[in-house]
């Protein structure tokens, strides 16, 4: 589903990703771990198409297509979804309006009928319940004044509504209490399907107890320096990254 080869990317003046390889097949869940500043969010941004991150070499293929050719909105319509590490506050744009515009653009692309306001409201309320999000948040401006945990839930809500093929979760578990963590995991697990895949960026083994990954990668110094099964996460929890990053450097 996703194939990344020798990816180099820069943000600002710095080269952040330096020859990264990664392959994710349909149905799989991959975890990406790694020290702060190692390039995890940069990878996520490359996949979502953030304009300020520039791919300088290598290939990024999604279902065989060159992703770098597509605008961010085209990628979203093709089924790529990034749950942001830092969701953006957008005063003056209602959460519900935003979510509806997002869903309808995807539905239109898939040749499905767009939902009207009533049907959409029903759907949004149902999904909000699933991720245990206060309905009142639907009527507020996007993320404006949301608590850290509420912002993360809002990301999961969007993911649940949009039902992407490839979901990338960038530290969606950071700053969440135990109950919220379960909710996020439930949202993710509900989406798991043979034709979908997930890339879960996290610092904590804890999340992986709920969302059991098929593969765990360690990203350090802009490259994947180690991949393994879920026991690798356990090992990292105990030993830290030092023993791996020394090799990378």
């Amino acid at each position: 589903m996703l194939k990344i080869e020798k990816l180099h990317a820069r943000a600002g003046d710095a080269e952040i990703l330096k020859g990264l390889d990664l392959e994710v097949r349909p149905g799989e869940v991959h975890a990406v771990m790694g020290p702060n500043g190692s390039g995890k969010s940069t990878l996520a941004n490359v996949l979502a198409g953030r304009p300020s991150v520039e791919v300088t070499a290598g290939k990024v293929l999604f279902e065989g297509r060159d992703l770098t050719e597509l605008e961010p909105e085209e990628r979203a319509r093709e089924g790529i979804f990034l749950a942001f590490q830092y969701p953006v506050e957008i005063p003056g744009v209602s959460n519900l309006y935003f979510l509806k515009a997002a869903l309808n653009s995807r539905r239109k692309h898939l040749g499905q009928e767009e939902l009207d306001a009533m049907d959409f409201l029903t759907l949004a309320k149902e999904k909000a319940k699933l991720v245990e999000m206060d309905e009142a948040l639907l009527n507020r401006a996007v993320n404006e004044g949301f608590s850290g945990g509420e912002k993360k839930r809002n990301e999961v809500l969007q993911m649940t509504v949009l039902e992407p093929k490839l979901a990338i979760l960038d530290e969606t578990d950071s700053g969440l209490d135990i109950d919220a963590l379960r909710v996020v995991a439930r949202g993710v697990n509900a989406l798991r399907a043979p034709d979908r895949a997930m890339l879960v960026i996290t610092h904590y083994q804890r999340l992986l107890d709920y969302i059991v990954p098929d593969v765990v990668h360690v990203l350090a110094g802009g490259r994947i320096v180690r991949s393994g099964g879920k026991e690798l996460a356990q090992e990292l929890e105990e030993k830290g990254y030092g023993w791996l990053t020394e090799d990378a450097a």
Partner: peptide
């Protein structure tokens, strides 16, 4: 705000919109 713009686009909303 470029971040807000990217956020909306990343959800499938056309740049102009």
């Amino acid at each position: 705000d470029e971040d807000a713009l990217f956020y909306l686009r990343s959800r499938g909303i056309e740049e102009e919109q």
